[in-house]
């Protein structure tokens, strides 16, 4: 299981976004560093507008322009864009078939389960390209 350490402030940003956006799905990016053994540390999370047209309670989409800005932001701040977070309103923090269909290699995918407007759990997943399935990461929050 790969290690994913999240700084408390970054976690706060993501959890607050998930609650504020309920019953719709929130989404955003997070940045940090990766060590040689693949362990990751998230130092910063950034809220992004869910640009999905139609029902945002079950889908999210990030505009190409927001993605482009995120990569530029990472470069100019000596950070790495490590992945994408989104929420699952009234559903478990497990990747859906849509998540798998759209998953990119390398990225960590944090999913926040929000039940009736309150945080249930945050979990993170990474695509195993060979198996074509997600593997869970070992999440620790750094206080």
């Amino acid at each position: 299981m790969q290690q994913l350490v999240i700084h408390k402030e970054a976690e706060k940003v993501m959890l607050a976004d998930a609650v504020d956006t309920f019953p719709n799905e929130c989404c955003g990016f997070f940045y940090g560093k990766e060590t040689a053994d693949g362990a990751r540390q998230i130092t910063e999370a950034q809220i992004v507008v869910n640009s999905k047209e139609g029902d945002q309670r079950r889908r999210f989409e990030i505009s190409p322009l927001d993605y482009m800005k995120a990569e530029r932001y990472a470069l100019s701040n000596d950070l790495t864009l490590l992945g994408v977070y989104h929420s699952h309103p009234n559903h478990p923090a497990v990747p859906s078939v849509h998540d798998l269909a759209k998953a990119l290699p390398y990225f960590s995918y944090i999913i926040i389960s929000v039940m009736d407007g309150e945080i249930n759990v945050l979990r993170s997943w990474r695509l195993n390209e060979e198996k074509g399935e997600f593997e869970e990461e070992n999440v620790k929050v750094l206080v």
Binding site: E25, K52, R58, R59, F60, E61, I62, P64, Y67, M68, E71, V84, H86, P95, S96, V97, H98, D99, K102, A103, L104, Y109
Partner: peptide, 8 residues
């Protein structure tokens, strides 16, 4: 280069 980011 910008990949599509989406999910459900």
């Amino acid at each position: 280069i910008v990949p599509a980011i989406a999910g459900g």
